[in-house]
Amino acid sequence: MKILILNYEYPPLGGGAGICTKYEAGGLATLGHQVTVVTTWFKGEKEIEKKKNLTIVRLKSIRKFTFKSNPMEMISYSNHAKKFLSKYLSQNKFDVCLANFTIPGGNVALFLKEKFNLPYILISHGHDIPWFLPKQMFKFHLVTYFYVKKICKNASSLVLLTKEMKTNADKFLGKNKKTVVIENGADLNYFYPNYKIKSKIFKIIFVGRQRAQKDPITFLKAIKIFKEKNPSLHFIVHILGDGPLRKKMESYVKKNNLKEIKFLGWLSKEKMLKEYQSANIQIMPSIAEAMSIATLESLSSGLYIISTKVSGNTDVIVEGVNGNYVPFKDPSAIANALKDFYENKFKKNYTVPKKIMQKLKNKYSWKMITQKYNKLIIKNENL
């Protein structure tokens, strides 16, 4: 089949959604499909890249940063994609479109359906459907409410990443047979434990975009409390990633003399593996998630996670076995959980059971996820 994939973010742009598109596109191409991805160009990247059954087209729409975007950039991508694809689809026929995000991917897919009768499968990544993150996304959801509903209802299928996301979508659209859960995956054969390089000094990591959704300020407050309560305990903290809150975080660290903390920015896949393998614990105080790829990678690397009960994590973290849950926006609870882990697991050289990590790999490998998408595509073709 000839498959068109729309996503305004594709590595090196964006976070989890771009990574998902990369592996899904590559996996479907490996299965023999002819796959074309239409995404956004960024400095240093090729405008057109071809790899056997896979073609990446990068459009020169507006994009300033790799790690964040804004509505104007989404509109720019949408306009460029409509213009490019109007001509491209006049010369190239596709069987189905996989559109990421209701806006801008679904917006473009709806346009193509109306103009070329191209069916599309819509993939939601959380915040694009009301009322995910209601505080931060309220205005956006209010303005786009009816248009997003139209985009969803015109899709052949609507893919959600978790059961919590499906519940939210069902409230928005009403229960229907179109909605289906297909989880995020991760390169779980690449991420594995290496206890030989595990840090002897208590090492804590934070991974992800530094924005309000991830609540990194609560993380820093927790580290401050942990340090104050345990003045003789030697530990280090690595913060991996970047984002709009970084300057505020650096200011907080400097003001509170948290010399244990280092900001490492975005790292290569190879360096991320070493960080996961050498760390003792990861803190994830997110207010909301779709489904965190970083969680899958770190758990597969044998890391223990202290997390809030966000979508996706509740399916993979087993309390007391490979992680613990803490309340939202509660730095004291995180500090207490850190001390408990230090005393009862770190000092006793605790390791996560192999069967837990194997179960994770069996369900969330990209091979398994790609097969689910392949079945959905074939099912939609036969409707």
Rank of each mutant, 00 (worst) to 15 (best):
R209M: 04
Y276A: 06
P11R: 09
F140N: 08
I356F: 04
S69T: 15
P12C: 04
L161M: 11
I306Y: 08
N154H: 14
D128E: 08
K139M: 14
E381W: 07
E319Q: 14
E47M: 11
Y77L: 10
R211S: 13
F146D: 11
L264Y: 09
I261L: 06
G18K: 00
S311M: 03
E297N: 11
F172I: 06
G241N: 02
K247M: 12
A109T: 06
F140K: 13
I223K: 03
G208I: 07
E250V: 07
Y276F: 15
E343K: 14
N107R: 09
F111K: 07
T179C: 12
Y88K: 12
P327A: 07
K93S: 15
S232A: 10
M1S: 14
E164F: 00
A99T: 08
E260Q: 15
M74Q: 14
S199R: 02
K113S: 00
F116C: 10
G15E: 02
E297P: 10
M74F: 14
A169P: 04
S298W: 02
L31V: 06
K22L: 15
V181M: 09
K175Q: 13
S365M: 05
K22V: 02
N154T: 04
T66F: 03
L264S: 13
K171A: 05
V207D: 03
E45G: 07
A109D: 03
V326W: 06
P285T: 06
E49S: 14
E183M: 00
V181K: 13
A290P: 04
I293A: 02
L59A: 08
N154L: 03
L245A: 12
L303S: 07
